[in-house]
Design a protein around this nucleic acid. Structure first.
Lengths: 139, 139
DNA sequence: ATTGCTGCAAACTCTTTGCAAGTTC
DNA sequence: GAACTTGCAAAGAGTTTGCAGCAAT
């Protein structure tokens, strides 16, 4: 039963348990593809028709502040959110708005090693994320 | 005399030479720090008070289409533009909106090599950009 | 002369905010 | 009951669009 997971996530961060927040968490789990607030809202509405778009925005923003979500950087004009917690990279398709996760431990190790060795003047590195631009083919 | 450079850039792309475009190119050169359309507009207005913000947006968009500029990906809500043509990465400061260029040929070679070796299923890589998140210190 | 560009203003989209009413702890 | 959360609607910010007049080739 995954509702318990959601409750755990919220209590852990000191947030109150509300049906709206649970529904947003559920929507994020189903939409696992860097959804926009609008996509989240539509998904939530299917189970919870009265939710307001403003509530979705506030909820997502709260989750970012608490570290439950991250914003995904885009060069478009809408926000997109990422619910995957551990370090990964993104594949950006030049032909569409598609953004996919890319996991690669070998690469992570390589980068980790590189930036441990190489210091950047006046800058402390927290984390490194790759934006891999290209095209999806033959699927 | 750098106006000639600007004229060359425009004619090369089949764009007409207008005072506004030259002024935008000049502003981009001076602002070399991933400016927003609004910053570009204010800079241009100092030499060219009658330019319209709409013109700046259209000009920047045209330049992106022609490959003169790139959009910088952010998780904020404003566009930012990058006038540096060759491959480089970005340092994102967690404490401010600051974004700095980061050049590192050794790193580029490493990545190039890595992705030549490692194929990503169903995806052709065009280019890889690092988003290096952290903090500027002691300046 | 033709084609393309600019300025202006209105329209649009996405996001944030204020607040009264309702929930959670 | 205190503190927080929601829904709603209005406001705000950033960006795009339509079009008449103007400028570049």
């Amino acid at each position: 039963m995954e509702t318990n997971d959601f409750i755990h996530i919220l209590t852990e961060k000191g947030l109150k348990i509300t049906p709206q927040r649970l529904a947003v968490l559920d929507a994020l789990r189903r939409l696992h593809n860097h959804p926009t607030p609008d996509q989240v809202c539509r998904m939530v509405k299917s189970s919870h028709p009265h939710i307001a778009i403003g509530t979705v925005y506030k909820t997502l923003e709260t989750f970012v502040e608490k570290g439950i979500l991250k914003k995904v950087k885009t060069d478009g004009d809408v926000m997109r959110y990422d619910d995957v917690p551990h370090c990964h990279h993104h594949l950006y398709c030049a032909d569409s708005q598609r953004i996919e996760d890319y996991f690669d431990d070998e690469l992570n190790a390589l980068l980790d090693d590189y930036f441990k060795r190489k210091q950047i003047p006046n800058f402390n590195v927290d984390e490194v994320r790759l934006h891999i631009n290209g095209r999806f083919v033959g699927e």
